[in-house]
């Protein structure tokens, strides 16, 4: 199973029902008094949030959220494996492994990882809910998954216009996989090479997708190259050379007993 999401921008009115559903599902906390607590500027911390793009005199919106990339820079850069892909390719965070280096936040070309550092009283609603001080992102409501069945994320459930579709890319008969296969639903910024699994059905030829709000990728070295350099060169170099230094140090220690030349 390869869960993917499609946002149909022709149907989306920007009513923010998805945002509200996401916040209630993943961000809000229940206090002991039975009150629901939200962070300040809560839309900023919603795992799906609107982004407006200027087109001459008009403004159009798209919703940004984790793209669950196949070649995810956040997963590749994470030093501890806290950012990982589960067996279905959903990019998740293991908070027990996270050391808050925040490399993933910088590495995400879509700028969808947020960090809430403020106070928030109450209990988390599930284990994948917002963790204060840790990177946060869309999990496709993985906590709703039961067994190996396809589930329905809160935003998809809440959308009154059925603008959000969720399905299995490996199901050839499914609406979602057919829309993608026929090229009706497209992934934005394919040039980044991250192979996103969030697709859009664009309005009027997809002009807004070319303006998709990715951080200017004029970075001198892409994050995946930094990860590759670290994992295939710097890490082995460090382990080998420090290991040799310690080994030679021991040999030197043994040999230098009574040797007048040693230092």
């Amino acid at each position: 199973m390869k869960p993917v999401m499609i946002i149909d921008l022709n149907r989306c009115t920007g009513c923010l029902a998805c945002v509200e559903a996401c916040i209630s599902e993943n961000i809000a906390r229940w206090s002991k008094e039975g009150l629901i607590n939200y962070p300040d500027n809560v839309v900023r911390y919603s795992r799906t949030r609107p982004y407006w793009i200027e087109f001459g005199d008009t403004r159009r919106h798209v919703f940004i959220q984790c793209m669950h990339c196949v070649n995810a820079p956040c997963v590749n850069i994470c030093p501890t494996g806290a950012s990982y892909q589960d067996e279905n390719g959903v990019v998740l965070i293991d908070y027990k492994k996270c050391i808050k280096c925040m490399y993933c936040v910088d590495a995400c070309p879509y700028q969808v990882r947020t960090v809430y550092e403020g106070e928030l009283e109450g209990d988390m609603l599930h284990e994948h809910a917002l963790h204060i001080g840790y990177p946060d992102k869309c999990t496709l409501c993985i906590h709703r998954k039961v067994g190996n069945e396809l589930w329905t994320p809160a935003c998809v459930e809440a959308c009154p216009y059925n603008a959000r579709l969720f399905g299995d890319l490996e199901d050839p008969e499914g609406e979602v996989s057919q829309l993608i296969r026929r090229g009706i639903a497209v992934a934005p910024r394919k040039d980044l090479g991250t192979e996103p699994k969030l697709f859009y059905i664009p309005r009027q030829g997809g002009a807004e997708l070319s303006e998709y709000p990715v951080r200017p990728r004029d970075v001198i070295i892409p994050y995946n190259v930094v990860s590759e350099l670290k994992n295939s060169l710097l890490k082995p170099l460090f382990l080998t050379t420090t290991g040799l230094a310690v080994l030679f140090g021991f040999i030197h220690m043994i040999r230098s007993r009574g040797d007048k030349h040693e230092d």
């Binding site: 420090t242 310690v246 140090g249 220690m253 230098s256 040693e262």
Partner: peptide, 20 residues
């Protein structure tokens, strides 16, 4: 980090060597 830690591993081994 690599430039610092590799020589320091050697430096540490020399420092704990009884001759030093």
């Amino acid at each position: 980090f690599i430039l610092v830690s590799i020589p320091l591993a050697g430096h540490f081994m020399l420092a704990i060597n009884p001759v030093n």
